[in-house]
């Protein structure tokens, strides 16, 4: 798992949060973990295939997730229902898609799978031997984390 794979995800988040939410994003301290595990209530998993393979996990605190969708919809959201979860899945999908496009400019052609949203902090996602790098992303409405576990099949 190379740290170079991380930057596109930060840049894409910066861009998408500015356009969709008019919010600035700062990057917190990176850390390596053994497995992808949700730290917050609202989670989105996206698979990656192609020149890089692995998984991405976006983990949003509940209050932040509700605030994000409130801002986008222009009306208050109070629960993590199908609408809110789907909107979060889309945001993660857009960020991942943009990040993958940036990776393509480094000659890494990847595809992403549709977002899977799940609620709760139980359990972890089984992975191959690769470690994951967790990127905390700090915004004025809260901090969420993106865990990136990608590896090149060519090594």
């Amino acid at each position: 798992m190379k740290v170079e794979y991380i930057n596109p995800f930060y840049k894409a988040t910066l861009d998408v949060f500015r356009i969709m939410l008019n919010l600035d994003v700062q990057r917190g301290q990176l850390r390596a973990v053994e497995e992808l595990a949700p730290v917050s209530e609202a989670n989105v998993v996206i698979g990656v295939t192609g020149d890089l393979r692995g998984s991405l996990l976006y983990s949003f605190p509940k209050e932040m997730a509700l605030e994000m969708v409130t801002t986008m919809a222009g009306m208050p959201m109070s629960k993590l229902d199908a609408f809110v979860c789907s909107a979060l899945g889309e945001v993660a999908n857009i960020i991942s898609g943009n990040a993958v496009t940036m990776l393509a400019s480094s000659s890494l052609a990847c595809q992403i799978s549709p977002p899977q949203v799940f609620i709760g902090t139980q359990g972890s996602l089984s992975m191959a031997t690769e470690k994951a790098i967790v990127v905390p992303l700090i915004t004025p409405i809260g901090t969420f984390e993106v865990s990136v576990s990608l590896s090149s099949p060519q090594g």
Binding site: M20, M72, F83, S86, A87
Partner: peptide, 12 residues
């Protein structure tokens, strides 16, 4: 609900 969220994020 899922479709409405998709349309919203797409439009924005």
């Amino acid at each position: 609900q899922e479709f409405a969220a998709r349309v919203m994020t797409w439009l924005i």
